[in-house]
Design a protein around this nucleic acid. Sequence first.
DNA 1: GAGTGGTCTAGACCACAGA
DNA 2: CTGTGGTCTAGACCACTCT
Lengths: 243, 243
Amino acid sequence: MHSVRATPGEGPLFAQVQALIIQRMVDGIWTPGERLPSEFALAEEFNVSQGTVRKAFDALVHENLLIRHQGRGTFIAAHSAKRELYRFFHLVSKDGVTPPPQTSRLISFERRKCSAEESRRLKISKSAHVVNIQRVRSMNKAPVIIENIVVPDALITGLGEDNEIPNELYQLYEQSYGVTIHKAIEHLHARATTRSEACHLSLIEGAPLLEIDRLAFTLDGTPVEWRVSRCDTSAHSYLSELF
Amino acid sequence: MHSVRATPGEGPLFAQVQALIIQRMVDGIWTPGERLPSEFALAEEFNVSQGTVRKAFDALVHENLLIRHQGRGTFIAAHSAKRELYRFFHLVSKDGVTPPPQTSRLISFERRKCSAEESRRLKISKSAHVVNIQRVRSMNKAPVIIENIVVPDALITGLGEDNEIPNELYQLYEQSYGVTIHKAIEHLHARATTRSEACHLSLIEGAPLLEIDRLAFTLDGTPVEWRVSRCDTSAHSYLSELF
DNA sequence: GAGTGGTCTAGACCACAGA
DNA sequence: CTGTGGTCTAGACCACTCT
């Protein structure tokens, strides 16, 4: 069969195996939560040794793309509320380190043509449409974050029409639209609260706010969501661990 | 010799090898920049196979503790200006992503008894002494950050007496005092500029500032430095990548 | 018990650096 | 040329899960 070796591709075998696995995820052949064939089965299919498949798996596990369970098998990683909390939500309460439970209140929801900036950030055509969600997130019943979320309409057709908008959007993208968020880049600034923000967050106008400007990407590097969160950091802080 | 197997310790062999290697770094037997024995040499010493040593090395390379050079050997990772920039300095210019060159201006330097808060954060005795540095960092000649740095005096005796205080302190800690910063935890807040900060940063009082509260740790988890940086984020942003 | 991943070993060959 | 890490293979045994 020589599925891998017949097309030598580039570089080490394990990297080629890795790329093939990722490609199957991108193509939707393997979906989040699904169990992969065993290491030996894949080794036979790709005509490499089991150790080579293992090495490819190892790398993908480190990238949070696969999850192994001894005795059960290897699975495509899926977003879960718990996982999401730690990976993509870095605001922690000031004293304890525990991320408090959250609720969201929708402020506005609209489907409209994208702005020039949105077109640039999301790499979509200037005439494309987007879904724009604004909401306030509360922790322990106190409003803490005001979020402005922009997603290309094409990626999530029908969102908000027949279904509720859940707290954890990334699970929704994944489960309902087959869009898996894999990476995000955040730019943080300190900004003064505007009048309308002050109203939503029970702050005074001009108070310092932490602004988190996040662009989220799928597996193949396509930007999927642009989210700007403005956070009241008087009782919380953004946690960043450097290794 | 069965150096590893004779004392079965706990868990997998490669993890024990890993721990032994880390211990030698903590003990100063192997110092930053130094070349380690080859995989085969260590395998013989520890009485394991070369593959097991390799697996231990792999993990340590992922943790930024070792660096491999094909054909040359494996080395203890050392802080370099370039490495430091990417690992522990996340402020980037707003437009380009390139971290601009920096200069520092010393505001104050003193050796004194630690405060209660400093004792708590640095886990040192309430009667211990600390070195306290305050300085302003500029990027492209404009003042951007005001830093307040507190280090236990015991760890860096003599600092600032006979030598200059360099821009990159972590290199100094490592090279002059054998203290290697391996991990840091940062808590970010938005804060209003105080009068004295406003003066140093050429801002108006009350303008929003990004405060970075960082605790830095050595290999064995000892806190070594407490640093609070207050940043003007009008032309820069704190970059955080989530995977 | 059968199947899976987890660990460990042993040996082969390659690519690179340095004397 | 020698020694190093980089890759790949093959096979053994263990620990865990499920039926």
